[in-house]
Amino acid sequence: MTVPSLRDLYDAAEKRLTPTIEAVVHSEEFATTTAIVGMVRREAGKRIEGAGATLWHLVNIPAGSDVRKLRRQVGELDYEIRQLRLQLAEQSHLTRSTEED
């Protein structure tokens, strides 16, 4: 008697289970359940984040949401500074061109 290899066991299990799993995954109930679980997870995450932020603020420490907001603001300021530098360089170039003529 030969002992089946791990690959043989895997292939046999896959062959038997795949139709059932595919039927479940493609069902309307699965789609609905997945959507509900996603909404519950997002809502729970928001509530946990809000509670954590409140706790950090109580001890006068910035929360993750504060840091994200500041990072976004710094990014916006960096963009504005780059735009201003480009405008100044262009204006300087135009001024020099006009003075040389």
Rank of each mutant, 00 (worst) to 15 (best):
S27R: 04
V40N: 04
L88Q: 12
R82H: 11
L6N: 13
E22C: 04
L9D: 04
S5W: 03
A31E: 10
E100Q: 14
T34E: 07
V37M: 09
T18R: 14
W56D: 11
E22P: 02
E80N: 10
R68W: 00
F30R: 09
A12N: 02
R16C: 04
A44I: 06
K69L: 13
Q83T: 13
T2P: 11
D66Y: 05
Y79Q: 13
V67E: 04
T95F: 09
Q73T: 09
K15P: 00
T18F: 01
I21T: 05
W56M: 15
D66V: 05
Q91Y: 06
T18N: 08
L84T: 03
E80C: 05
F30M: 12
L17E: 08
R72W: 01
P19Q: 04
K69C: 06
I36N: 05
D78R: 14
K46F: 08
T20N: 07
S5M: 06
E43T: 11
F30Q: 07
E28Q: 10
A23K: 14
R96H: 07
M39I: 08
G50P: 03
R41C: 05
L88G: 04
E90F: 03
V40W: 01
R47C: 06
P19N: 01
V37I: 15
S5I: 05
L94H: 04
L9E: 09
E76I: 08
W56K: 14
D78G: 10
V74Q: 10
E14W: 07
W56L: 15
L94M: 04
I61W: 07
D11P: 01
R16T: 10
I21K: 04
H93W: 09
E43H: 13
T2D: 13
T33W: 06
V3L: 13
E22G: 02
P62N: 02
V25W: 00
A35G: 00
Q73L: 09
V40D: 06
M1N: 10
S5K: 13
S97I: 00
E49Q: 15
R71P: 03
E29R: 11
V67M: 06
V25N: 06
A31R: 14
E100N: 10
G64K: 10
